[in-house]
Amino acid sequence: MSEKLYSISVEVNGVARSAHVPARLSLVDWLRDDLRLTGTHVGCEHGICGACSIMLDGEPVRSCLMYAVQADGHRVTTVEGLANPDGSMSVLQDSFCKCHAMQCGYCTPGMLIAAKGLLEANRHPSDTEIRAAIGGNLCRCTGYQQIVDAIHDAARRMASGAK
């Protein structure tokens, strides 16, 4: 059995990546299984949990609800792309550590992407805006409060010039 393959070129975390993929390969499976970028997690695989959130052309989307072939010609940022160029953690990631915004860590990559999308559009989000931004991401450990605290903390630090 051979499925037809489609040629794609996608910029992933600033690096041009090319591949031949079957049409039904989801974007998250391509990122994890072929590119070995396993930071992006697969939770429900039907758009409920938010664990697979990535940025497509700078906007958070769910990578289980896209086929890899649809990303051809687009720009993808995964959680691996959030760190500083020298490999140290970004302020947002550091705030998650500082505020204990994770326990098992399964939702964390999706939460970070959702938070990144929010902070890029809104430098001073309110509690309500933060809760709306992560409303599509399920966490079963933290009770969410520390995640909200971490995003507030990151917003404050970024406003005072931290990177």
Binding site: G47, G50, S53, L56, E59, P60, V61, R62, L65, M66, A114, G117, L118, A132, A133, G135, G136, N137
Partner: peptide, 9 residues
């Protein structure tokens, strides 16, 4: 309608 991630797409 849905969430930020689903309304973006």
């Amino acid at each position: 309608v849905g969430h930020v991630q689903t309304r973006n797409r």
